[in-house]
Design a protein around this nucleic acid. Structure first.
Lengths: 217, 217
DNA sequence: TTTTGTGAACGTGTTCACAGCG
DNA sequence: CGCTGTGAACACGTTCACAAAA
């Protein structure tokens, strides 16, 4: 199997969600064209993405919704459960704990850690917040994934601890680049960056081609 | 000025944050090489990105940290404030309200809306949650940005309402593709997708090149 | 005829490599 | 000599266009 691009995987995620909707609507088949339409991309892109993993469609008919959804679930590894360690019981951490969507997709938060003594021992969404000093023992829990929801300055340190605890993947919500060994998968959700990117576009829209003088031609 | 790629803008965000750190460390100058190192990219990339907007460095010396940071702040439009409407006072919405980082970067949430009667009228981080039915009047508040922190099924409808209310940019936290007019900037933060992308990579790492038979060659 | 699957063409973003300046 | 700024080379992802299958 050829190398799969990050963009393809992202779109697979989208297809998966669209297929859930389409299945709920009661449709049995869907063409690459319709699938593309709902994602705002081209049908060729859809077919190319799917062809990385096999031939799931039938010429002249399209794709069987239920079957394709099952295939993508399997490709994305969503047909199994992942044990997750959450570090940081602040606003974002609490939001993640409360969000039921992750459990629905196979991610079970099995432990929560924090550094703040006032949070340690508190119960949050059914889990008792543990001292981050106990994290190294977490490997024994068999968790494969770590989520970092701490302030920026602790993020790299926490990442190191998670790696030492034996996780194979990290989802980082702190807005900074983290360095992890090659065998550890890393994804970063950087809301700050999205805000700034939005700010850039809004700013550009007002003054699309300024050079030096604000009043100049 | 040539068209700026999305990736360049994202990296600008990163440079901006690194420069803040570097400035706090008391350094006066920084080379593209050092800047790149801290972001895990190449120095050519840094220079190319910056050259889209001007010549901020000095050959043989590098870039003045404070000056470059100011330039990027201006490029990203962070030297002004943006008025933000938040829709959805659930877990994510509350986390955003409580997060002080946004205000620090120029984003002021000026109003919060929800559909749930049990939330409407409640005070959240100093703001009274308003009925989403009152959103159309929001245009009068002069808000330029809308944040969608609602469940998936309401997201498109809320986007339409925000556009009608006159926002020029939307930051979407609901995991689905939204359709907005061309003059409205849109960014989506899709945590679910990041989880699934992580799941894919972890899954792949286990069985990197399977075909059909799990036991076959 | 409809729609997939895919090589080829195309466009965009990244890296290289070096001229030019300090 | 050190480091920036940048055209040229390269790699990668997207779109086109069509043969093959239903």
């Amino acid at each position: 199997m050829a190398r799969i691009s990050e963009s393809t995987v992202r779109r697979l995620s989208h297809y998966y969600r669209v297929l859930a909707e389409v299945e709920a609507e009661g449709r049995r088949m869907i063409s690459s064209h319709r699938l593309a339409e709902r994602e705002g991309i081209t049908s060729a892109q859809v077919r190319k993405d799917l062809s990385c993993f096999g031939s799931f469609g039938r010429r002249g008919l399209g794709y069987n919704v239920q079957h394709l959804r099952g295939e993508i679930r399997s490709i994305l590894g969503l047909d199994r459960r992942w044990r997750v360690l959450l570090v940081g019981a602040g606003h974002i951490g609490s939001a993640l704990l409360a969000y039921r969507g992750f459990a629905a997709q196979g991610f079970d938060i099995v432990a929560v850690y924090d550094r703040d003594p006032s949070r340690i021992g508190q119960k949050n969404a059914g889990l008792v917040v543990q001292d981050i000093a106990d994290l190294p023992r977490a490997g024994a829990q068999g968790a494969e994934v770590g989520v970092i929801a701490t302030p920026i300055k602790s993020a790299q340190e926490v990442a190191d601890a998670l790696v030492a605890a034996g996780v194979r993947g990290i989802l980082n919500f702190a807005p900074r680049k983290l360095f992890v060994p090659a065998h550890v998968a890393l994804r970063t959700v950087d809301m700050t960056m999205e805000f700034e990117s939005l700010s850039f576009e809004l700013h550009q829209a007002r003054a699309p081609r300024r050079r030096r003088a604000p009043s100049g031609g």
